[in-house]
Each structure stands twice: as C-alpha cells, then as structure tokens.
C-alpha cells in the first residue's frame, strides 16, 4: 500500500512540474545584446560527412573561437531537409536554435512543393559561405568530351542522353536549368546521392551528373569520367584550372550554391547583427580559409544580411520559372 502511495504522489509531482515548465522557461531568457550567452543549437539539413555538414562544422569551430560559446550541431537530413527547416521555423525565436542549410532546402524545396512555406517565414541572417566546387561530369561510355559536344549530341538525339539527379531536388533543378539555357533535351533520371551517381556513371548506366569536384578528381585523371564545366561565375582557381565555366562555353548559366544561416521569424535584430559580425570575422580568418580549400576546394566568401536577402530573392524568382517542370 505504502509503495502505491509513493508511486502515485511522485507521479502527481512529476505532472505538476510538467505544467509549471512552460512558465519556468520564459523567465530565463537572455538579453539579445549579449548573445550568445550559452551554447547555440545548429540544425543542419544534411547528414554528417557531406559538404553542408562540413561547412556547418567548420563554421561552428571558428564561431566558438570568436564568441567563446559552442555551436552544437544536430544533423537532421530527413525529408530532403524539410524536417530540419520545419523544426527551426517552429522554434522559439530566442537565438538558441538556428538553421544551417543551402538554397536547395531554402528555395528548391519550396519550388518543388515539398514545403508549404518559404524563406520569408524565417529571419535570414547571412550567407556564411558559397559552394563553388560543383562540376558537370560525363561518363566515359557516353563519349561526350565537352559542353559543345554535349549540346551537339543532345540536339542530334533529343531526350536520349541521360542525366542523373534526385528528382525534386537541387540536382534536378540544375539539370532543368541547363536544359533551358542550352536549349537541349535530356532524359532526367532519379539516381540518388553523389555516390550513386558515380557508381552508375562508372557502370555506364547514366551519362551526365553534377558532382562535387573532389569526388571525381581521380576519375578525371584516370579518364573514367570527363569533367565538362563548372557552375561558377568565374573559374574557381582551387579546381583544375582548365575546367571552363558554362559562360565560357557559350551558355549563360551560373549556379553557385550559397549556404544560409537562418533564425526563426521574429528574432531580435541585435542577434542577427551579431552573427553577421561574427561571420564576417570568421571569413577573414586565414585558418578558416585554408580549411575550406582543403575540404571542398572552396574559397571563403561571406555575404552580409541585406545583400544576401537580395541575392536569395533573385535566385528564388529565377528558380520559380521552373516550378511546373520540377513538381
């Protein structure tokens, strides 16, 4: 009997604590001017080990050096990144939880209809880094040797050349825009991650794919894969300097992939100013710059709040033109 009573009373106590919890939290809020006063949770839209995770973690390391507070990374890759974006969107806007993603999740997911909200539902802080390592690659068996060659062959046989993507994702859009700008027709297949793209190209089952340079560098040297072009505005000198941009090949096509730091809507402007200040400082750090080049052949680039918003809005408008094709 005694045991039962104890059981019941502790249970009741626990329930009471639960109801009190809501009130307890708000009292311990920190003033925005001093942010960050404790560890910041960063939700990353990709699993550990990839380029997005790498950028987030590298940024986090230097964030701690500058502010003295750690950034704790949580990898939430599910649902094409939509689980992570939804989580942050619905969090309290107190600067304790932030989102680290790229335009694939922030814009393409909206364009593809995967999420029913947009970048306007966040307080976008800045663009801490820009991926400039992606290249268009052709398999050996396709016989394609250059962008000009690709355009010629695709025009001769529309819809025959296959392009590897993840349907509804960033690489799908990359393919659609390429088709639009080059005026060609490719057969877009769902192949999966970068690893799947490489194996399927090596196995001769697909002709084209957009992949990070580091992952295909060796294959370009062995001749198993052919790098056709880079998606950057100007040649990224950290890649093989002989890789042309699309513009140089006569196609007006630039698709750099900015990473984005975003807060839940309604975050104090002081916090956003502060992270911009920190991000600017990090981008100047020579060690940080070297780490990015080592990891993903990526030069450091930081785009501040206003400029970032403008760039993203422009990007969104551009991508929206492909909405019907992507969905």
């Amino acid at each position: 009997m005694k045991k039962k009573q104890l059981f019941a009373s502790v249970l009741a106590g626990a329930l009471l604590l639960g109801t009190l919890a809501g009130c307890g939290n708000s009292a311990s809020g920190d003033s925005a001017e001093e942010w960050p006063t404790k560890a910041v949770n960063v939700v990353v839209t990709a699993s550990a080990g990839g380029d997005t995770d790498f950028n987030a973690r590298t940024f986090a390391t230097y964030f701690e050096q500058v502010t003295g507070q750690p950034m704790v990374i949580a990898n939430t890759a599910g649902g094409g990144g939509s689980v992570a974006t939804s989580e942050v969107k619905d969090s309290k806007a107190d600067g304790t939880k932030i989102l680290f993603c790229h335009t694939g999740q922030m814009i393409v997911n909206e364009v593809a209809g995967l999420i029913d909200y947009s970048m306007d539902d966040f307080d976008i802080a800045c663009i801490p880094a820009v991926d400039k390592g992606t290249v268009l690659v052709a398999s050996k068996s396709s016989g394609i040797t250059s962008v000009e060659d690709l355009v010629e062959k695709a025009k001769a046989a529309p819809g025959e050349i296959t392009y590897a993507s993840e349907l509804g994702g960033y690489s799908h859009l990359q393919g659609l825009i390429l088709m639009g700008k080059a005026g060609i027709d490719l057969k877009i297949l769902d192949i999966g991650s970068a690893s799947d793209k490489i194996t399927n190209m090596l196995g001769g089952r697909v002709d084209l794919a957009a992949i990070s340079y580091g992952a295909v560098k060796d294959y370009a040297e062995t001749g198993d894969l052919v790098i056709l072009a880079q998606y950057n505005e100007e040649r990224n000198e950290n890649l093989d300097p002989d890789i042309p941009t699309f513009v140089e090949c006569g196609i007006d096509f630039v698709m750099e992939k900015p990473y984005i730091i975003a807060f839940p809507k309604g975050t104090d402007q002081a916090i956003i100013d502060k992270i911009n200040e920190v991000a600017a400082q990090i981008a100047e750090d020579p060690d940080y710059q070297a780490a990015l080049i080592d990891g993903y052949n990526q030069p450091a680039e930081y785009i501040a709040h206003d400029e970032a918003l403008e760039l993203l809005a422009q990007t969104r408008e551009e991508y929206m033109a492909y909405q019907d094709l992507l969905q």
Partner: peptide, 28 residues
Amino acid sequence: TLGIPGDGVTALLLGAFMVHGIAPGPLL
C-alpha cells in the same frame, strides 16, 4: 578504391579523409 561510402560510418570516414584534403578514389 572508389571513394564511395556505403553507410553512415563510412560516410564519416570519407569526411575524415576530406578534412585532410584527400579525396579517396581510384588513385588513392
């Protein structure tokens, strides 16, 4: 030999290579 991770663990190992500026592949 291919630079292709098969699961979560090997993806992290790949990340460990990449951090040091080494991209595993046929020429590793």
